[in-house]
Design a protein around this nucleic acid. Structure first.
Lengths: 232, 232
DNA sequence: CGCACAATTGACACCAATCAACCCGCGTGG
DNA sequence: CCACGCGGGTTGATTGGTGTCAATTGTGCG
């Protein structure tokens, strides 16, 4: 979402580059971090799409976040240490790890950069709250429209979107896990959305035909994505 | 939840005390911060219960978090500035404000204390994720049992609980807004829970009769509350 | 006394989960 | 080459959970 380079001085930029550790690749479907881990480093997505998820007793899975290039998927594990959920690769992924020791050095020496990292985790929290609202108080159609809107804006911010389309390489089952819906109902809801003519979703690409209508359907207001600049 | 004094050195403790600003009181039902505000300070609850919430077009309300004594309700507004949701007083509340200028001073001079503040916001995020999971993948009964469990543990951590009971001063309508259920269904779900004999909820107090059963019902695993200590 | 609010109950409609098929494209092995 | 399995998508039928509408009770308070 927000590139970590935003608003950074040269010194800060160099510090974050120096903190980067190993590059790693993950095949689609592989876990990048697993619930219960104490990873010792945090992971920045460089290429591909990842999902945070938790499972429940009956085997159900809930995806609690989707992350694309430029997102830290587990920056919270730096202060919290223990992973309370898993992160999996939706597509083949390329990531860079940031050892917590290096992040510690940053927090000891670069207060503004520390606030930027803090802010990145707060954006996740803001998105979490919005998902709670859509899950709790919107219909399946509205919720789905909202998620399509959100992902469009986030893809734009990451520079991954075209004027009217963006990559969205989920299966409908995964999409349903993010929405908290069954596969069947996800499929039917998607078909209703398609019939509105607001969008199409094919071959991992969402194409928006009628943005005002989609935004209206999903009651989408991007304020919670905090597109404005960070306080220095 | 976690008292901000945990793990703090004397110097850090003094710094946080020095950062405290005005004390304020709010009557039940009054907003402490409102969506769209740029408060310029963050608010720590000293007494009473507060709720974060957002509203949707049809007038529906979703409560995205409940906060008790010891919780910062809008610490995220320090890095993010703009409030993307509102916070209201469930009961009469006493709070202390921390001017962002003072928090800025802390982040410039107390790296470990900064990480503690960061951690507090990350705990909110972890709870958000858990709420998403219960909303998306558990039944109303399970979700309600889970919330009762969570609130019990959090009340214990704040020193507000007795051995088997804790204050829970919501109306059923507010409780339903937190669960994402209608008032009627909230009431019926509560009655089913009561009939299990696991708990009672009367006059703003929850009394737990059968903790193992309640925990089992709600599939409650407190890992996500990160009860362990912060990395120094 | 009258009123507002919280809790509760019944009847009903509807949204979404489940179960069960089926189609399709693709890769693989006989 | 073809049969087969498999994952992803789609559809129909049915069930069940949840929302909505409406009404009632009880309580506290002006």
């Amino acid at each position: 979402m927000v590139s970590v380079r935003d608003d950074l001085s040269d010194a800060e930029h160099n510090a974050i580059l120096a903190a980067a550790g190993a590059s790693r690749r993950f095949a689609a479907g592989k876990d990048i971090v697993t619930q219960g881990d104490r990873p010792g480093f945090s992971t920045l997505v460089v290429k591909g799409m990842t999902a945070r998820y938790s499972t429940v007793e009956d085997g159900g899975r809930q995806i609690t976040g989707l992350h694309i290039a430029g997102d830290f998927v587990d920056l919270h594990s730096f202060p919290l240490q223990l992973m309370d959920h898993s992160v999996t690769a939706i597509t083949p992924c390329e990531v860079v790890t940031f050892p917590h020791q290096q992040l510690m050095h940053i927090t000891e020496n670069y207060p503004h950069l520390t606030r930027v990292l803090w802010l990145l985790t707060l954006l996740d929290g803001a998105i979490h709250r919005q998902w709670m609202v859509t899950k709790g108080r919107l219909t399946a159609d509205e919720q789905m429209a909202h998620l399509f809107c959100e992902q469009f804006v986030r893809a734009q911010m990451a520079g991954l979107a075209n004027a009217q389309s963006y990559p969205f390489p989920l299966t409908q089952a995964q999409f349903g896990d993010a929405l908290g819906l069954s596969i069947v109902h996800t499929n039917r809801t998607l078909q209703r959305l398609r019939r509105t003519g607001a969008l199409e979703w094919e071959d991992g690409v969402v194409e928006i035909f009628d943005w005002p209508q989609l935004r209206e359907l999903g009651q989408f207001d991007p304020t919670y994505l905090h597109l404005e600049k960070l306080r220095r």
